[in-house]
Design a protein around this nucleic acid. Structure first.
Lengths: 133, 133
DNA sequence: AGAGCATATACGTGTCAAGGTATATTAAGG
DNA sequence: CCTTAATATACCTTGACACGTATATGCTCT
């Protein structure tokens, strides 16, 4: 029981270069397996297997057209990636100034002469560890 | 001239749940290896090895503080992910509300007959957006 | 110099996913 | 029906990589 734990994260899905290539292809319009196969010059079983993974992860969906399957993108997983990315967004969209980052770096390389002696229980001021949501 | 190391794609880097957990930790502030180790309850060599991967991929950088290394985020790889995501953005800019349903549905979607994996268990439901481990 | 802590690395192991090849399914047409 | 086209799946092999354990390196203080 409890067989399928197999909810792979969206990140594992897009980690595969061939899958990203397929997704990029589908941006322009929906494509059949054979069209993907030809454009990416990749063996048909490979295409089918990747499409299966993408479909099960919700990245694509397919409709039947005679003997063909037409695959097209679905938006949700991309939103999920975007949601994850949002938490890091302040690192470049807020202060895009590489200058400030640079200054921050010098700030602690210069006056850092701290000993290991006494360390007030965590140098992370103002941190709250969003733990165990 | 082995200038560029085995430049793995940023996607392979963030495919690893523990690495995403580390990145999430570093959002709040820079952390030492030991602090990461304790907060994530993960063995020290594991933390160090993941940090090495993250550093070589440009996700983090470190400064020396006595015997400790303080790690902090770097923005570039996140921008790279964001740039990739941009190409798909038009697909979900419309369906902003579909994300919630998607995430809620991910619990029971049992799409594959893969073998047993030991991913997130218990209370955290399917999504790992918030935390892991 | 030595002890002790903090971090990095080396090594062996198991797991899992991706690729290749072959075959199965399904639909269309003669 | 039988054949052919289009796609899916099964089986096997291989390689990468994440983990655990053990050890090495490095820093600080006494």
């Amino acid at each position: 029981m409890a067989y399928t734990k197999s909810m792979e994260s969206v990140f594992e899905i897009i980690a595969e270069p061939n899958r990203r290539a397929i997704l990029s292809l589908l941006v322009s319009s929906q494509q059949s397996v054979g069209e993907i196969e030809r454009q990416l010059r990749m063996p048909q079983p490979t295409v089918s297997k990747h499409l299966r993974v993408l479909r099960e992860a919700g990245f694509v969906e397919s409709t039947v057209d005679a003997q063909r399957r037409l695959y097209r993108l679905k938006p949700e997983p991309f939103q999920e990636v975007n949601a994850w990315l949002d938490r890091f967004r302040r690192f470049w969209s807020d202060h895009v100034d590489a200058l400030e980052r640079h200054l921050d770096r010098m700030d602690q390389s210069a006056p850092a002469k701290r000993k290991t002696k006494k360390r007030p229980r965590g140098p992370n001021r103002g941190r709250d560890i969003g733990e165990e949501k």
